[in-house]
Design a protein around this nucleic acid. Structure first.
Lengths: 197, 197
DNA sequence: GTCTATAAACGGATAGAC
DNA sequence: GTCTATCCGTTTATAGAC
């Protein structure tokens, strides 16, 4: 739920049409990918005509660009909100739970993982937004692994940068496999593989 | 190149229309996903009308089902052809090179990884074919890691089954990231992360 | 802002001639 | 087997009234 300041007073805010459109667009991309949903799908979910959607997002590329930026901002905000003073292995558990939310009801995958798969259909500025999301996660995980090794709770080999990239790839692959097999355990198996005995 | 025995004689065989269709379908799926290509695309690539494609593959689901089965058979044949008497870490390098071929000219990802992302658009028997491919790879990698640990060349933690699943997920995620960033190093970083010092 | 109406191309699929 | 012709719903997008 969002709040808006108008005339120095805070009003509770029911989501605008624009917000609803972005929200459902995110869900549909995570479910079926960029080429797997249409303005008609959104139209039926939100209850406006497809021509009204073009008022907010002139083209589908505009819509997906804004959707990926909103998604990225929200996830990264949660990521950077993880208390850095916590032991590394506990922060890794927090990250795993954060990533698990992408699964939704078990039928979704990470929006940026999906768009990375659909990249051949997407314009350059969307690629850059997705790359930015990947890099932020990879860097964060790389630092986490370095501290975990120092603290003796996580097992890492090689450079922290490369290890962060590999770990993020594992999570992306794991969430895809998790949905494919209809199980929730795949993400935790990734975490488990990095835990020191 | 295929060879066919006709009247006790081996003739070199130019690919049939059917074979070309399956071949290009595989490429298009690896490029753009199930919802990202059409019978028209195939029609222009092979040089037959779209109605002729329906002669071989009545529906698009028939086409993708056969494509995933051909792809799976070919990759698994190469996988099982890897000499089991070789040291585990060398077999892992062979696997990495095998998986790298999915990248093509750098613009493709693994067909089964792509279809796993597109799974919400696909029928149940395609899901089972993709699951089967995942399981075969995961099992093979799990055994490999077990032997690598025994031989002291690979670093693994936890059960071999779970480790195989995590490693396969890493490869799937790595090939997606590899294409996203236009680099070829991501797959090797995965291998590197499992190598004992 | 939202609608109706419409455009123009594309989607998978079928019938029937050759 | 391959084609022409066609069906009919879908898709993204625009123009213009309200």
């Amino acid at each position: 739920m969002l709040y808006l300041q108008v005339d120095k007073v805070w009003y509770m805010h029911t989501r605008t049409i624009r917000e609803q459109l972005l929200d459902y667009a995110q869900t549909l991309i995570m479910l079926r990918g960029y080429n797997g949903f249409s303005y008609r799908d959104l139209s039926e979910l939100v209850g406006v005509k497809t021509s009204s959607i073009h008022y907010y997002f002139p083209s589908k590329e505009d819509l997906v660009f804004e959707a990926v930026n909103v998604y990225s901002s929200e996830i990264l905000a949660e990521l950077y909100a993880i208390d850095p003073s916590q032991p590394a292995h506990l922060r890794l558990d927090r990250y795993t739970r954060l990533f698990s939310k992408a699964l939704g009801e078990g039928d979704q995958i990470c929006l940026c993982g999906m768009l990375a798969a659909d990249m051949a259909s997407l314009p350059e500025h969307v690629r850059q937004a997705v790359q930015s999301f990947f890099r932020s996660n990879e860097t964060w995980l790389g630092k986490l692994l370095t501290e975990g090794r120092k603290q003796g709770t996580l097992v890492v080999s090689g450079s922290p940068e490369a290890a962060g990239r590999v770990l993020f790839a594992s999570f992306q692959g794991a969430v895809i496999a998790s949905r494919l097999f209809g199980v929730k355990t795949r993400l935790e198996e990734v975490t488990q593989a990095y835990r020191a005995l």
